[in-house]
Design a protein around this nucleic acid. Structure first.
Lengths: 172, 172
DNA sequence: TAATATGATCTGTAAAGCAACACATATTGT
DNA sequence: ACAATATGTGTTGCTTTACAGATCATATTA
């Protein structure tokens, strides 16, 4: 067959594929943070859940799941495992008895504090090639992209609104 | 890597969690590019495979799998489906008859060309909040991170070496 | 030639997304 | 108040994918 492959796709080569670079970063971060997790219940995913729980911004399991992009049926047994591990509790919401408020236990908060340090270390390893200020630029741009208006992406959820409001820049 | 992190618990709130923002970006990109894919065999994953195949840099299926961070057993039936769809072919390597060289068919190259435009559009949607020059900065930093020395991340593979050599010093 | 390594495939298991259903509770319309 | 509808949670079943292990063919090395 033909062997002129180098020319056919030169546009892709020159700027590298965004999806591919993104994938590499995610895998590196996944690996590094998993290593930093040790025995923590559900690895990086579990860590994210605990961060969200401790932040106290998500009123129930469904909100928690949507915030993290996890299926709500998965969230059920994810929380189950966290309860078993004594890291969080399900509390009944007197204002809406269908919902379960997920709150961190003292042990959960302690565990998170311990982990955060190592996770930040993992981040630095992954971003290691960048200089200090470049890392901050990267994080800043990434944050802005992640907090962008959902309408443009048709993602269906305002990812950062609660956080923004908490910080005082309430915008809708 | 010593760490002079400030105060653990509040710092996460104020600078948002890196893993979370990364997750949001990945999901947005996933959704946007999936929508752009239409009926394409394996969605964004399949697209990545085809990009790698057309680039012609991966000598066999295993290299292909490692380049994309896909398990080698998955790559087998991924390629199967692409062959069925007439997008790629498995060719025997006379120099090593264990390996299968995966090459794109004409239809495969045409299909990729068609997709690339839409995928780039999806990228722009995802990065929509950033200005033009900011997007380029972001892509550039991301590229550097993805192509970083694997030793630092213990990922086991030099992700960009073949590419770099192709663009500059020539082939191995 | 024998031992070992590598590439591809197949099989089986587990995690996780997804859809559909069931149940309890809230909200809304009449 | 009652009925209809919506919502939060949990469960079940299906599908995709990751991952580990075994098998087979072929290469490489002792």
């Amino acid at each position: 067959m033909s062997n002129n492959t180098a020319f056919a796709s030169s546009s892709v080569e020159s700027q590298k594929d965004f999806g591919w670079t993104l994938g590499v970063l995610v895998r590196n971060y996944q690996n590094a943070s998993t290593a930093a997790m040790g025995e923590f219940p559900h690895g990086p995913r579990g860590y994210q859940v605990l961060v969200a729980v401790v932040s106290g911004e998500q009123p129930n399991q469904l909100a928690l799941a949507q915030h993290l992009g996890i299926d709500r049926t998965v969230m059920t047994y994810l929380i189950d495992d966290f309860v078993k591990a004594g890291l969080v509790e399900r509390q009944l919401n007197p204002a809406d008895r269908r919902a379960r408020i997920v709150v961190a236990t003292h042990a959960g908060r302690k565990a998170l504090e311990k982990l955060q340090h190592d996770v930040l270390g993992a981040e630095d390893v992954v971003l290691g090639v960048l200089a200090e200020d470049e890392r901050e630029v990267f994080r800043s741009l990434l944050r802005r992209v992640a907090c962008a208006e959902p309408a443009a992406v048709d993602h269906g959820l305002g990812a950062c609104e609660a956080m923004e409001e908490m910080l005082g820049t309430g915008k809708k």
